[in-house]
């Protein structure tokens, strides 16, 4: 596999529907499941599939993504040869005219030339899944297809493509003549002679493209049959190490049906919720149907129902915040919520 498959993660995507959560970060760096960033899923899948060279193409607000990935050490991608490559794009979108990923790839075409891997897998950065790419590569090689697009059994493209690296280079270099700006353009266009195939994937996979779907996908993690499809011992989802202590449940805590990361201090009630690393929940506080991101501090006697707290939010004692499961109340990163502001 080492010599065969190159991983390419297109992290240039932006979804307007997720705006409240993306003001400080790229979609790839969106926190998920208490301790991960969305990109951890595809990146870990690549590493677990034996891919040793991964290129990530981010755009805009990539500071948090870069901080998260670092040298790639956590994914064992800090290698002398191959490893993790990070190619932020120098190109900025002009109004209403988003630039396709081929344009970003073209800015670093030397990387593709230098790569020795015969095949490439190009993937989006916002799918929650745990997939072994090896059987798909075997399938692709046997099928004789030029491009294999991974489809989900529920229909629909998963926006992941297998292609010979040499053909990918050709497509990137001829983008101006052909008008194809990304892989999607090619598979959706029939005016060419490339042989396009579909590989059907029947495991769990969700693409995060709106707050509503981010919220429901997060809540579904509390169902053990879904949880077990994502977190597999032999194919672990790897993330940045934080060295937090175990979570401490103090007197008065009451927790059920919840996923809780390390480093939390819990003194209140937590139900049907996802709590990230280093969160403090005060005594008498009630947290229901919530996603609480890293380092939030919820003081005593608060009541939160159907709320997404982005990172570093502080909620003053006695504050009540409620949203609905269809439209959860999103509190932006680093803000402070007082009892008097939202009563």
């Amino acid at each position: 596999m080492k010599r065969k498959l190159l991983g390419v993660i297109d992290a240039t995507t932006y979804h307007d529907d997720l705006e409240d959560l993306l003001t400080h970060r790229s979609l790839a760096a969106l926190p998920f499941a208490g301790r991960y960033r969305i990109i951890d899923f595809v990146l870990s899948n690549m590493v677990n599939s034996g891919i040793r060279s991964v290129a990530i193409f981010p755009k805009m607000q990539y500071r948090s993504l870069m901080d998260h990935l670092g040298s790639g050490k956590n994914w064992d991608l800090n290698r002398k040869r191959d490893g993790l490559f990070f190619f932020p794009s120098p190109i900025v979108d002009s109004d209403g005219n988003r630039i396709g990923s081929f344009e970003h790839f073209a800015g670093n075409i030397d990387f593709f030339y230098r790569s020795t891997q015969e095949y490439s897998i190009i993937s989006n950065c916002y799918t929650i899944f745990n997939m072994d790419f090896r059987p798909i590569l075997d399938w692709h090689r046997q099928s004789g297809c030029d491009i294999t697009e991974i489809h989900h059994q529920d229909g629909g493209s998963m926006e992941m493509y297998l292609i010979k690296t040499s053909l990918l280079i050709k497509l990137i270099e001829t983008r101006n003549e052909t008008g194809y700006t990304c892989m999607k353009d090619i598979v959706n266009n029939l005016h060419h002679f490339y042989n396009i195939c579909h590989y059907e994937y029947n495991g769990y996979a969700v693409m995060i493209d709106s707050i509503e779907n981010y919220f429901s996908t997060s809540m579904n993690l509390l169902q053990s049959d879904i949880w077990k499809q994502l977190f597999i011992k032999e194919q672990p989802i790897i993330t940045k190490v934080k060295d937090e202590p175990p979570t401490k449940y103090i007197k008065g805590s009451y927790v059920k049906n919840a996923m809780i990361a390390n480093g939390c201090l819990i003194g209140g009630t937590v139900e049907n919720s996802i709590v990230s690393r280093g969160v403090k929940i005060g005594k008498g506080a009630v947290i229901k149907n919530c996603i609480i991101m890293q380092k939030c501090h919820i003081e005593d006697n608060c009541y939160l129902d159907s709320v997404i707290l982005d990172k570093d939010v502080k909620v003053d004692a006695g504050t009540h915040l409620t949203g609905t499961t269809r439209s959860p109340y999103v509190i932006r990163k680093g803000t402070k919520q007082g009892a008097l502001m939202n009563s």
């Binding site: 499941a33 208490g34 301790r35 956590n74 509390l222 053990s224 949880w227 994502l230 977190f231 672990p236 989802i237 790897i238 993330t239 190490v241 060295d243 202590p245 175990p246 979570t247 401490k248 449940y249 103090i250 007197k251 805590s253 009451y254 927790v255 059920k256 049906n257 919840a258 996923m259 809780i260 990361a261 390390n262 996802i274 709590v275």
Partner: peptide, 28 residues
């Protein structure tokens, strides 16, 4: 003054709806 250790890199802990957790220290 953090105490470092070799990180096992496991998912967050899952507390089911049948569970009750009181005054405890639980790891990922």
């Amino acid at each position: 003054w953090r105490i470092y250790s070799v990180n096992p890199n496991q998912p967050p802990q899952y507390i089911s709806s049948d569970a009750i957790v009181k005054e405890s220290l639980i790891n990922e």
